[in-house]
Amino acid sequence: MKLGLVIDLDTCVGCHACATACKQWNTSGTIGPLSDQDPYGKDPNGSWLNRIRTFEVKEPEPLPTKGQGCGSQKFDLHALATEGTSALLSDASPASKTVHMPMSCMQCEDADCVTVCPTGASYKREEDGIVLVDQDKCMGCNLCSWACPYGARELDEEQGVMKKCTLCVDRIYDQALPESERQPACVLSCPTSSRVFGDFDDPTSKVSQLVVERNGQPLMPELGYKPTNQYLPPRNKEAVAMMAKTNEPALSKLKKWANRVIAR
């Protein structure tokens, strides 16, 4: 078995429900508590096993041709008056997308965090590929967090041991729970079902099929960690049509609007 997650970047709304549910479950689970430092103060801090980053993704801007570089761009008052500030801010490109990217442990096949561990506290389970930390053995040297490119490991400052996502190992095998609930807390809490849990070794599983259908990709494959978790890229949807801008005088606009209101 190769258990892991598929995360749909098309539907994730970046609500942080997965991160909160993760903290809630795991702080009272087998690896808990996940300590916080100054939780209600100015500089709230603590161990989180799941973090969500938000990126702007847009079409690359064409390279400036000769004589048309950034420096030659003039402040165009006319453009400002007719098209609004958007004409001046290249950031406001209509072809840009905001993508929320939740990240937890990728349960890598070649997990260097396990290789570098000097105490044997970090290990990868043979039966399902989940990477875990035995907290009774960890000496808090931080080397595994240095070896992880995904920032999946965080030191619990209070207990001095490394904490990481367990893929809710204390939940997914719990026979006392109804079968539909034997899933990681982040998956159950996701309001848009952007997170899917399953076995990547089974080609008929939902995760395997999603990866095939939607062209799922790992993050930073060039480092060779062979991460199990896969990310589904956003679907290519048509850009929302923008209202055409007119140079109509304000008075005639007002008249049209008044006529529309009265006609109702």
Binding site: P118, G120, C138, M139, G140, Q159, V161
Partner: peptide
């Protein structure tokens, strides 16, 4: 720099 030096012998 170990956060939990009591386990250092396991290293």
């Amino acid at each position: 720099h170990l956060a939990n030096p009591k386990n250092a012998w396991r290293a």
